[in-house]
């Protein structure tokens, strides 16, 4: 099958190659632009620390007993979603429910509860949806493995195309 395709390619000669690649170009370009756009959005979402200072200026003042507690509060409120305005984390949101939940998290930290316990407190009430970093499970496998599979798949594709063209030129 592969061999037949390869020989067909050679018989067509360089003229055929040029024709097919120009028809090829538009869909490939469209695909590349789309993939770039998608990965760009994903990358933009993946930098939560970017506007950290501006984000925390909105939060009511809280009396932390230590730097460690404050750091834990920051990272927890950053990785938990506000369910009301769903594109914001608890740290970013101004809505009353986010304020209540921040207060709740603050008190849980003061009570000496672990990050795991606080996360599962939230998941028990609002579901996995509140986690910006969802757990690795059967239904999230595509989410976690998807980018790696896509990257490997396209790398293999590129290598195959390069090899075939090299063969065609020889």
């Amino acid at each position: 099958m592969n061999k037949a395709k390869g020989s067909g390619f050679r018989v067509q000669g360089s003229g055929g190659l040029r024709l097919s690649s120009s028809v090829f170009r538009l869909p490939c370009l469209l695909l590349a632009v789309l993939l770039l756009a998608v990965s760009g959005t994903l990358l933009a979402q993946a930098s939560p620390e970017a506007q950290d200072e501006q984000r925390f200026s909105r939060i009511e003042p809280l009396d932390f007993r230590s730097e460690v507690e404050q750091a834990r509060f920051r990272s927890l409120t950053n990785e938990l979603r506000c369910t009301v305005c769903q594109n914001e984390s608890l740290a970013e949101s101004d809505v009353p429910l986010a304020r209540d939940l921040r207060r709740e998290i603050f008190h849980m930290i003061q009570d000496g509860r672990s990050d795991m316990e606080i996360r599962s407190f939230m998941v028990d009430r609002y579901g996995d949806f509140v986690l910006y970093r969802p757990p690795l499970a059967g239904h999230t496998l595509l989410l976690w493995a998807g980018p790696i599979v896509l990257l490997l798949g396209s790398l293999i594709g590129v290598i195959i195309v390069i090899r075939r063209r090299q063969q065609a030129l020889q």
Binding site: T83, V84, P96, L97, D100, L101, E104, R125, Y126
Partner: peptide, 11 residues
């Protein structure tokens, strides 16, 4: 709003 959190109320 404490009981509402336990009920998973968000709006």
């Amino acid at each position: 709003g404490r009981a509402a959190i336990d009920l998973g109320v968000y709006g």
